[in-house]
């Protein structure tokens, strides 16, 4: 059951990852470079900080698991320079990230946004809740035989043995006193 739930969540996640919000054929505004920067050109220090942050957040297109900042490849350098230009022109980090995601897909982000992969984040919690629920149901259905009294089986006493039993008990009481 848990495995089926996991598989379903994986399938949902895959579909949602392939169909990011807003990626529609007729939305051309996302394809082209954003027309206008949303901010004024930032100061040199802020621009350097934003550039560095973006270069660490975006993936080198020709490398395996390396950010633009960490890669020595020419393609990464070109991408880093482009990031720097866009930052200096006043484009926000979101605009620049969107620009690269539009061209390379969500893959270009080293840490893809959680909204595209919600199922993967929900899955562990959902599985834990399912497991706890299953345990609770199992525990309720289990015979209640945990107390010490009920654990002792009741024995039907043989009426013929009653005198013997009373005698043993009285002898035991006598020894105790």
């Amino acid at each position: 059951m848990i495995a089926w739930v996991l598989l379903s969540l994986f399938a949902i996640s895959s579909v949602s990852a392939q169909m990011p919000a807003g990626k529609v054929v007729d939305d051309m505004s996302l394809v082209q470079l954003p027309d206008l920067p949303l901010e004024d050109p930032p100061s040199e220090a802020i621009a350097a900080e934003r550039t560095k942050r973006l270069q660490h957040a975006l993936r080198c297109p020709v490398c395996q698991g390396l950010s633009v900042a960490d890669s020595p490849a020419d393609a990464a350098r070109a991408m880093g320079d482009r990031i720097e230009e866009l930052v200096e022109e006043g484009y926000t980090e979101e605009q620049i990230t969107e620009y690269f995601v539009d061209r390379y897909g969500a893959w270009v982000e080293l840490e893809p946004p959680t909204e595209d992969h919600k199922a993967l984040f929900i899955a562990p919690i959902a599985l834990l809740l399912i497991a706890l629920g299953a345990f609770a149901v199992w525990n309720r259905r289990r015979p209640t035989s945990t107390t010490s009294e009920s654990a002792i089986p009741t024995i039907e006493l043989d009426p013929d043995l009653k005198p013997w039993r009373e005698r043993i008990l009285s002898e035991l009481e006598g020894e105790a006193s």
Partner: peptide
């Protein structure tokens, strides 16, 4: 079986494959 299917789905995809993000767009 679901776990095997899950692994098959994962290994069946080329991790180097890039999305064709611009297909169908201007």
């Amino acid at each position: 079986l679901p776990l095997v299917a899950l692994l098959a789905a994962g290994f069946g995809r080329d991790p180097k494959l890039r999305s064709n993000a611009l297909e169908g767009r201007e």
